[in-house]
Nucleic acid binder design. Structure first.
Lengths: 244, 244
DNA sequence: TATGATATGTTGTCTATACAATTCAGCCCA
DNA sequence: TGGGCTGAATTGTATAGACAACATATCATA
C-alpha cells in the first residue's frame, strides 16, 4: 500500500499534521477504501523517514476524528462512514458561511439590562448586574432560520448593530481578544410561541430545536449565555459520536 | 502547587492515565481551582519521576476533555465550567442507569421486515432486504421518556423481547461481539403525532427532540439505523463544545 | 516615557530506543 | 476435528534527549 505522502520539512506545518492531512485526503478521495489496512507504524516510519511516534501522532489524529481504527496486534484500518466534524466552538454564522448559505442577521434587540437570575447564574455574576442582551434573527436566502438570544458581560466588548449584522458573534468576540475555549450546551425542543412563529415563518406551536449554552474563555470566565431557537423544518444539528 | 499524585507502578493502569485521573480528581474536588496554574511539565516530570512525554500525555488527556488549557511559553491552567463528557457511543439505557434513573423498556415491535429505502440507504444494503425492526418505549420512574426505533441488519444478532427489556441495545450488541465504533447523528425536533403523544403521555403536537443515527462497527459496516423521539419536557441532550 | 531588543520560561515537535500487551495464524496433540 | 500452545506481528506505553516556537519580563536606548 503506497500512500504517496510527500513531506515538506521546511513547511511550518508540523510533520505529523502533514502526514495526517495526506492520509485523510487519501481516504476522502477514495484512494484508501473503507476497511483498507494501512502499513504498520514501523514501516510507515521507515518509508517516510520519520520517527514512529510522529507516525503514531498522525494516526491518532485521524483516530480521534473517527476516520481510522487501530487494533493492537493487528494494525490500523480505515473506518467507513461519512464522518462529521467534532463538536467545536463555531458560531452558526461561520457554519452557514462555510456551507455557502449566505447568512444575514437582523438585530432585533441590543440593550444593557439588569441580569435576570438565570443569566446571572450562568455568567457567574450577581443578579441585577448590567449585561448586554442581544436578540437577533438569522436568515439565509431560503428565509428565516433561527432566533438567537445572547447575554454577555457588559465589560466584554462594545458591539454595534452594524457589526452584529455583518459578522458572527463569536467572530466579533475573538476579534476583540476574547479567547473562547469551551462551552456547555443543552439541546432540546419546544413549541413556537406566537412571537417566535411570526419571526421564523412557522405556525404557532411548530416544533423548534433549542440550544441553551454557556461559553467560557480560556481562563474560565463565562463570556456568553445563549438561548437559540431554530426552525426544525430547516435545521438539524449534526454530530459524530465516537467510541473511545 | 503540590498535587499529591501517587503512582502505583505495578498497577496495570497506564501511568499517564493515573496522573490524569488524579489531576482530574483535584479539579473536581476543588483542590485545583479554575484559573490555577499547574507546575510546568519539566517540574511535574521530575516530581513524579516520569518522563516529560508521559506528563504531556496525561495533560493532553485533560485538555481534550476541556478541563485544562495550555499556552506555549506560559503554562497549563485549569479551565472553568462544569464540563460534560465528550459525545460518545453510549445508549440511553446506560446513561439512565448511570444517572440512577432506573430505566424500563417496553418492546412495542420486533419484526423482520424488508428494508425501506431510507433504512437500506443508511445501512448500505439493497432495498427490500430483510432487516430487524425494533420499536421500544423507554421509561423511568417518572414515566415515559422516549420512543426508540431501530433497524439492524438481520444477520447481526438474535435479539429477544426479554433481552431488549432487560438491557440496552448497544450493550446487547457489544455482548454479541459487535464492536461499535462511530455514529453519525442528526438532532432535530418534531411535533408529536397522535400515536407518539399517546405513548409518551404528551399532547398531540407537543415538541419532541429527535435523533436520527447511523452507527458503524470498527471495520466500517453500518450496524444500526436509529430514529429516537424524546419528550422535550423531560429530556435535553447535553454536550461540551471545545475550541481546538 | 515609549519602543525595541534581549533574556528567560514554558509548551510544541521530533528523534531514538526499549519493553509490554494483545491478536492471529499455525502447529501439535488428544 | 477441536482445543490449547507457541511464535510472529503489531500497537501501546514509557524513557531520555534535543531543538523550535511562542509569551512575557527585563533592559537599553532614544
Amino acid at each position: 500500500m503506497n500512500l504517496s505522502v510527500e513531506l515538506d520539512r521546511s513547511d511550518p506545518v508540523p510533520l505529523y499534521f502533514q502526514v495526517a492531512r495526506q492520509i485523510e485526503a487519501a481516504i476522502v478521495e477514495g484512494r484508501l477504501r473503507p476497511g483498507a489496512r494501512l502499513d504498520n507504524e514501523l514501516v510507515l516510519a521507515e518509508q517516510l523517514r520519520l520517527s514512529r511516534l510522529t507516525i503514531r501522532r498522525a494516526i491518532q489524529h485521524l483516530v480521534d476524528k473517527g476516520l481510522l481504527v487501530r487494533k493492537r496486534g493487528v494494525g490500523t484500518q480505515v473506518v467507513h462512514g461519512q464522518v462529521k466534524r467534532a463538536a467545536t466552538l463555531t458560531s452558526l454564522y461561520d457554519d452557514l458561511v462555510k456551507s455557502g448559505q449566505q447568512p444575514t442577521t437582523q438585530v432585533l434587540k441590543i440593550d444593557l439590562v439588569p441580569a435576570p437570575a438565570e443569566v446571572a447564574d450562568a455568567l457567574g455574576i450577581s443578579e441585577g448586574r448590567q449585561v448586554l442582551a442581544l436578540e437577533r434573527l438569522r436568515s439565509t436566502q431560503d428565509g428565516p432560520l433561527a432566533i438567537m438570544r445572547n447575554w454577555l458581560p457588559a465589560s466584554l466588548a462594545e458591539l454595534t448593530t452594524e457589526q452584529l449584522e455583518q459578522r458572527g458573534l463569536f467572530q466579533l468576540l475573538r476579534s476583540n481578544g476574547v479567547h473562547l475555549r469551551v462551552a456547555s450546551q443543552q439541546i432540546g425542543a419546544s413549541n413556537a410561541t406566537t412571537a417566535e412563529a411570526r419571526l421564523l415563518g412557522e405556525n404557532r406551536g411548530a416544533a423548534l430545536l433549542t440550544m441553551v449554552r454557556t461559553t467560557y474563555d480560556d481562563v474560565g470566565r463565562a463570556v456568553e449565555y445563549g438561548r437559540d431557537s431554530y426552525r426544525a423544518s430547516r435545521y438539524t444539528f449534526e454530530m459524530t459520536l465516537v467510541d473511545r
